[in-house]
Simulated assay, not measured.
Amino acid sequence: MIAQVTDIFKDVLDNDDITLTDATTAKEVDDWDSLNHIQLVVAIEKHFNIRFTAKEIHSWQNVGELVDSVAGKV
């Protein structure tokens, strides 16, 4: 699942050099700012045909927590 999320990040942020791990945070990824965060969430929701609550989105501290949320919904 992290591979699929990585592909979404590469597409949305237009950067094929992105490598994500469970511990990756927004500070470690170029161009992952608040605006792109919204675009990433929307792209992930669309890809997996799921919806996140605002509370879920605000609770994520790293990519692993985001992926866990996806896994819990698919």
Rank of each mutant, 00 (worst) to 15 (best):
D7S: 15
L13I: 01
D33N: 13
W32T: 01
D33P: 12
D7I: 08
V63G: 13
L66V: 15
K73S: 12
L66K: 12
D68T: 09
I57M: 09
A26R: 06
W60F: 15
L20D: 04
L20W: 02
H47R: 14
V5N: 14
T53F: 05
L13E: 02
V67T: 10
K73F: 00
N62F: 11
I57C: 12
T19L: 03
M1W: 10
D68G: 09
V74A: 00
Q39D: 03
T21N: 01
T53Q: 13
K73T: 05
T19Q: 13
V41Q: 08
Q4M: 04
A3R: 02
L20A: 00
V74E: 00
V63Q: 12
V74D: 00
F9M: 06
A54E: 15
T19G: 10
T53G: 08
D31R: 00
T25G: 03
A43N: 06
D14F: 00
L40R: 03
Q39M: 04
N36K: 12
I18W: 12
V74I: 14
K46L: 01
V12T: 07
D22A: 12
D11T: 12
H37F: 14
D11R: 09
E28F: 06
K55L: 12
A71S: 15
F9W: 15
T53E: 14
L20E: 02
N36I: 02
D68Y: 06
V74L: 05
S59A: 10
E56Y: 09
F52V: 06
D68S: 13
I38L: 13
L20Q: 05
N62L: 10
T25R: 12
H37I: 07
L13P: 00
V63Y: 05
H37G: 09
V42W: 00
W32Q: 02
F9Q: 00
S59C: 04
N15D: 14
L13S: 02
N36P: 08
G72S: 07
F9G: 01
F52M: 11
E56M: 13
A54W: 06
D17M: 13
I38M: 12
V5T: 09
I44F: 04
V42K: 11
V29M: 11
V42R: 08
R51M: 14
Q61G: 14
L40S: 06
Q61N: 05
